[in-house]
């Protein structure tokens, strides 16, 4: 009399019903929360990680805003921009946090962002103008740093101190894809800025050093920590993470003659239905409450120096004369040429 065929079907049905009930419950719970306004912030994956700035910043902002701040990790920086373009007018994002000045030109061209209407005086080097000048009408900076190759002092002794030395060595490196990742794009522009027409030749030399090209910073840094490469493209501030968080002094950033800067920015989407809340968040971003969290979670220099010194383990930034940066408006054309060279060389 037992018919296990229907019984197994019934069991599967029951499981499905349970899942559906669970899903419905979740939906109802979300609906109940909808009373408080939700501010959706798209950012890169490492920002929302447990050890990243996301959780602390969420708690700090929610204390004052009477809202629900929702961070959504959407890949690495450049993929973040593609995502916003992809979703277009349908996007639920109110704020995008995690582009940098290398992308802000392209982001502005997409026409999806609204002016922030704020005047700010950031504390960071400015390679092409007076220190503290900030005239981007759409994006506000929240932190900055220098790109650098990070290595393990106990494993790599013969540390290259320039791109030429790196290309000539057999040191293995992991880098990020400039099409999806802001460090990857930073490296592309760093080399283009320094080598100009010789950039392709330098990439030819570097090609045999590259173990793999990852989509994002997290993957690359993970591979480096797993021992898959001798060096990884990261930041001069990355060793501070190991010193402060892990008491591990073995990691160091290789000093090159010049270092390309990254200034990370956030902007408000024109289509946001929480425009005021988005403004409020961008203002909050420039205050101590936000800025003080950055150094030991995002491991970058805060754009608006909070009261109190940087934690021990953070080396003072290298001299401003070593800083390189291509103005945001010029990046687009240079990026296209540099990317074509990079693709041509690395696909050989």
């Amino acid at each position: 009399m037992v018919c296990p065929r229907t019984c197994s079907a019934r069991r599967i049905l029951e499981d499905t019903m349970k899942y559906l009930a669970f899903a419905a419950g979740t939906l109802l719970a979300t609906a109940a929360l909808a009373e408080t306004p939700v501010l959706t912030v798209y950012t890169y994956d490492s920002f929302v990680a447990d050890w990243g700035p996301g959780p602390q910043i969420e708690a700090a902002f929610e204390e004052t805003c009477g809202c629900d701040l929702k961070f959504v990790g959407a890949g690495d920086g450049a993929a973040l921009l593609a995502r916003i373009k992809l979703e277009g007018a349908r996007s639920e994002a109110d704020v995008v946090l995690g582009l940098d000045t290398n992308l802000s030109g392209a982001a502005a061209q997409a026409g999806l962002f609204a002016p922030h209407g704020q005047r700010v005086v950031p504390d960071m080097p400015n390679p092409f103008g007076a220190a503290g000048a900030w005239d981007d009408p759409l994006f506000l900076p929240y932190d900055w740093g220098y790109f650098a190759f990070v290595y393990d002092k106990t494993k790599l002794t013969d540390v290259p101190t320039s791109f030429d030395a790196l290309a000539a060595s057999d040191v293995k490196i992991v880098i990020q894809d400039p099409r999806s990742s802001t460090p990857g794009l930073g490296l592309l522009l760093w080399i283009k800025e320094q080598y100009g027409d010789e950039a392709a030749a330098l990439w030819e030399g570097l090609a045999d050093n590259v173990v793999t090209v990852t989509k994002g910073w997290s993957e690359a840094y993970g591979l480096f920590l797993e021992g898959e490469a001798d060096m990884v493209l990261s930041y001069t501030t990355s060793p501070a993470y190991h010193i402060v968080a892990e008491g591990d002094t073995s990691k160091a950033a290789a000093a090159f003659p010049s270092h390309y800067m990254q200034i990370e920015v956030a902007g408000k989407l024109a289509r946001s239905d929480q425009s005021e809340l988005a403004d409020q968040f961008l203002t909050f971003m420039t205050t101590d409450a936000f800025q003080a969290i950055i150094p030991t979670t995002n491991w970058m220099y805060p754009a608006f120096a909070p009261k109190g010194a940087l934690p021990d383990g953070f080396a003072a930034p290298i001299g401003a004369e070593q800083a390189r940066l291509i103005p945001a408006d010029d990046v687009a054309s240079i990026r296209e040429e540099a990317l074509a060279e990079w693709l041509a060389v690395l696909s050989k």
Binding site: A79, S180, V210, V211, S347, K348
Partner: peptide, 20 residues
């Protein structure tokens, strides 16, 4: 990884996801 080891199927994904 990277342009050196990309299949066409992966290139479709990248064109879609990285550059829209």
């Amino acid at each position: 990884g990277g342009p050196r080891a990309t299949t066409v199927e992966l290139a479709i994904y990248e064109a879609f996801h990285f550059e829209f």
